[in-house]
Simulated scan of single mutants.
Amino acid sequence: MEGFFQHYLSLYRPLITKLNELMSTYELSYSLWQVIFYIKTNGPSTLVDIANKYNVEKPTITRRVHRLEELQMVKQIPGMDRREKVIQLTEFGEEIYLACRKNITNLENSVMESISYEDQLITFQTLPKIQENITVGEGNKRE
């Protein structure tokens, strides 16, 4: 389906802009939210775990975590290995997560309002498959 990626990319940037606007009240950006969301979903996590999830370099995650520490939303806890940094949400971070989650859910509901549940479900199931194809290099195969 030619043009699929162009359509996807044309919605990605405005969506990130909208998310950044929503989170600016909390001094957050979408990239900082990704760290909070990962920790909330997976529990205390290492920088490597978070970097691997979002396919970014560890120094990028380190900078994000430092910013979240400055905002007192995350803190380091002892890990199995002294060299390994394990990060968890603070109580304040949990509160911010809940506030942002509510705002993001409201945004999701508003942008999906005129789209049938069946179409939403198909999209929800299809996007991870596309991501997997890109990640494992299967996107170029034809049957």
Rank of each mutant, 00 (worst) to 15 (best):
E138K: 15
E27C: 05
S31R: 13
L28E: 02
A99P: 02
L107M: 14
T123V: 11
E91Y: 12
L15G: 06
L28A: 07
V56M: 01
L89C: 06
R64Y: 15
K18E: 12
F5R: 13
T135I: 08
L28S: 08
N106L: 13
V74L: 11
T60F: 09
E57W: 00
T90K: 07
G79K: 13
I104D: 02
T105D: 12
E118G: 02
R83E: 04
I115C: 05
K40H: 02
P14C: 08
P128S: 03
L121K: 10
L32Y: 05
E27V: 00
Y26H: 05
Q34N: 07
M80H: 09
E57I: 00
Y38L: 02
P128A: 11
E2T: 03
N109I: 05
Y26V: 04
I36V: 13
N133F: 13
I16V: 07
E113I: 02
N20G: 11
C100G: 10
E113D: 06
M112T: 02
H7C: 05
E57L: 13
K102E: 14
G137L: 06
G43E: 01
L68Y: 04
Q131F: 14
L89W: 00
K85P: 03
I87C: 03
E143M: 00
T62N: 13
E118Y: 09
N55P: 01
N109T: 09
E138W: 06
I77R: 11
R101T: 03
E94P: 06
M23I: 07
I87T: 08
E95P: 00
F5M: 14
E94T: 10
V74M: 14
E91G: 11
K85C: 08
H7D: 13
E143R: 08
Q131I: 15
Y30T: 07
V136D: 14
Q72R: 15
S24M: 11
I77P: 08
E95C: 05
M73C: 11
I104S: 03
F124L: 12
K75F: 05
Q88A: 14
L71I: 08
D119M: 02
K129S: 09
L107E: 11
N20E: 06
L28C: 04
Q125P: 01
L127V: 14
I115F: 01
I104F: 00
I77E: 09
K58L: 03
G137R: 03
K75R: 14
N140E: 03
Y117C: 05
V48F: 11
R63V: 12
Y8C: 06
E91V: 12
F37C: 05
T17Y: 01
S116C: 07
I87G: 03
I16W: 00
Q6E: 14
G139K: 04
K129E: 15
Y97T: 04
L89V: 10
E94D: 07
E108L: 15
S24N: 09
E113F: 08
K18G: 01
V65R: 05
N52F: 00
Y26G: 02
T60W: 01
L11V: 15
E95F: 01
K129I: 15
I104K: 07
G93W: 00
V35F: 01
V136N: 15
L68C: 08
R101A: 12
G139Y: 10
T135G: 06
D49Y: 01
T90R: 05
F5S: 14
I134A: 10
P44D: 15
S116A: 06
M80I: 07
E91H: 12
V56I: 08
L68H: 08
